[in-house]
């Protein structure tokens, strides 16, 4: 059992969870993830780390409630516990001075892109961060990201804040305005990472994406997270999670991620029903 220091719904349906796990906090690096089981009957689910604090011995994760595991996590109160957490997993981001680096985030990726932006800035890069959301009320972490970046842009699908549109549109605008970009990093839903990779490919800009396939153990033991990159099968948990977005077989990722959709919907519904009964007691 691990103590949950803080769990907050920071914007509708997106939660921050801060977990006491000193060993992971000490070793965490940008781009790495952990695997969490909310309770003993739970699944093992990977989450990108957004921050860590060696003194406090905690790590911070942002997540969206989409299914039973995240629903369970979203109901943990500050001061509560989670059953299992293992990490840090995956290869860290290669941090170097590349010149100008774009860091794009959407959804949980707004939180997850933060440590990459921060490390890139520390390494001397000019960091341009771009985040996206459906609407202004779903944006979070703006201040921290602004601080970690030289330039910071917001995009919303409904145009309620910043550029109307998505990360890729802001990116295209930057290029059109004459900005020379050396590298780009995107973290978010698969669709967002694919769209961003499509744009950067047009401009031939090296692009890394943090893939988020289904995993079980997270140590390369099961092969559940296999993805095709550049025609070769890779295990996202140990060979990634970051890969060249221009080499990724996106169709396969979508297909493999949708295998359990029916089961996931059923489990989520069953959980909500039981939860309902409990609250009536």
């Amino acid at each position: 059992m691990y103590k949950v220091v803080r769990r907050d719904e920071i914007v509708p349906n997106i939660h921050l969870i801060e977990i006491e796990v000193p060993g992971i906090a000490e070793k965490a690096k940008p781009g790495q993830f952990v695997i969490i089981m909310p309770d003993e009957t739970g699944e093992r689910v990977p989450f990108s780390m957004s921050d860590w604090n060696i003194e406090k011995g905690t790590i911070t994760i942002f997540f969206l409630e989409v299914g039973i595991s995240t629903a369970k996590m979203a109901r943990i109160k500050s001061g509560g516990t989670i059953y299992s957490i293992a990490g840090p997993l995956g290869k860290p981001t290669s941090i170097d001075n590349y010149g100008t680096v774009v860091c794009g985030g959407g959804c949980y990726g707004i939180g997850a892109i933060y440590p990459i932006a921060r490390a890139m800035k520390e390494a001397g890069n000019k960091v341009i961060s771009i985040i996206e959301a459906r609407s202004a009320y779903l944006l979070y972490m703006e201040e921290s990201l602004k601080e970690a970046s030289d330039q910071f842009f917001v995009s919303t699908a409904d145009g309620s804040k910043g550029t109307k549109g998505r990360v890729q549109e802001v990116f295209a605008k930057l290029i059109d305005s004459g900005e020379k970009i050396d590298r780009s990093y995107f973290v978010g839903c698969t669709f967002m990472m694919m769209n961003c990779s499509d744009i950067t490919k047009q401009y031939n800009i090296k692009t890394m994406v943090a893939l988020n396939p289904i995993m079980v153990d997270g140590t390369g033991m099961c092969g559940c997270c296999r993805v095709t990159v550049g025609g070769n099968t890779k295990f996202a948990c140990v060979d990634g999670p970051e890969f060249d977005g221009h080499q990724v077989d996106w169709k396969e990722i979508f297909e493999r991620k949708s295998v359990y959709l029916k089961d996931e919907a059923m489990a989520y519904q069953t959980y909500q029903q039981t939860e309902c009964k409990v609250s009536k007691v």
């Binding site: 079980v216 153990d217 099961c222 092969g223 396969e252 949708s258």
Partner: peptide
């Protein structure tokens, strides 16, 4: 890599 193909490790785990 089709969906529905497991390693024995994954299936049994």
């Amino acid at each position: 890599n089709l969906s529905g193909v497991y390693s024995a490790n994954e299936y049994l785990t």
